[in-house]
């Protein structure tokens, strides 16, 4: 995979507080263009909060955050043009068909109608979903919906895509398929920022950060992390970090 050294996300001293509760405690990290960056942590560690700040859905309490070269405070709308986002809460319209969903999202990103049509056909061919293009989203199995949601999130060719636990609730084979799509997107140059709590998925990432109680406890490539914590797999790494916190 081609690695570029340019930073597409720059976060320094990011703090997000909800009243007395600190969800993000002084986070500093960079994500390089083209990489698959895994954002790991237990439930409630503060992953989704960070993700919402990065994608312009939520304001940080303090700190500096730049996404795709734009400041998330002052240039939020410019940030939004350059990102894709797929939430853990399922985000397609249940009562629209596959095609209508794609057309709608393509449309509100301002893509030309003809382009939307052509790209939709190509996309459905690639996903092998041509025969369900006129089915309502609610009639499809969860794994399919997730694939479509991901494809919709990168339909406007963003520089970076944020995925918030994209594979929750599906079987390992479907998850594997989904990661194939992530790799494809990554090859085409899209930076992937993905939160997950499946540690096997962490192995697929170029770099991971592990969050616990609002802080980043570790950040490196999966191989180096395993070496550093003297672990067989990412599962062990994660447990060691979480244990350390409890002691």
């Amino acid at each position: 995979m081609l690695k570029q050294t340019e930073n597409i996300i720059e976060v320094s001293n990011l703090v997000k507080k909800f009243g007395n509760f600190t969800a993000n405690d002084d986070l500093t990290f960079d994500v390089k263009q083209g990489e698959i960056f895994g954002f790991l942590g237990a439930n409630g560690a503060g992953k989704t909060t960070t993700l919402k700040i990065l994608s312009g859905l939520s304001y940080p309490t303090s700190g500096k955050v730049k996404v795709a070269g734009f400041d998330v405070y002052r240039e939020r709308e410019k940030v939004k043009k350059n990102i894709g986002y797929m939430s853990q809460k399922f985000s397609l319209y249940d009562d629209l068909t596959v095609k209508e969903n794609i057309r709608f999202y393509g449309g509100i990103y301002g893509l030309p109608g003809k382009y939307i049509k052509e790209k939709t056909d190509e996309l459905l061919r690639r996903l092998k979903m041509e025969n369900i293009k006129d089915s309502l989203i609610k009639s499809l199995p969860l794994g399919w919906k997730q694939k479509i949601a991901f494809s919709v999130a990168i339909f406007h060719n963003p520089g970076i895509v944020f995925l918030d636990e994209p594979t929750g609730g599906v079987d390992p084979i479907t998850r594997r398929d989904f990661w194939e799509l992530i790799y494809e997107a990554s090859y085409s140059g899209i930076t992937v920022f993905v939160t997950t709590h499946y540690m096997d998925e962490a192995e697929y990432c170029d770099r991971v950060s592990i969050m616990d109680q609002g802080r980043i406890e570790a950040m490196d490539t999966p191989a180096l992390l395993k070496k550093q914590y003297n672990a067989e797999n990412m599962d062990e790494v994660f447990i060691r970090i979480a244990r350390k916190q409890q002691l």
């Binding site: 859905l57 939004k80 939430s87 399922f90 985000s91 397609l92 319209y93 509100i108 990103y109």
Partner: peptide, 13 residues
Amino acid sequence: MGTIEQINVTPIR
């Protein structure tokens, strides 16, 4: 449904 969040990350005004 959560779709509003998806709308909110788009550059729509």
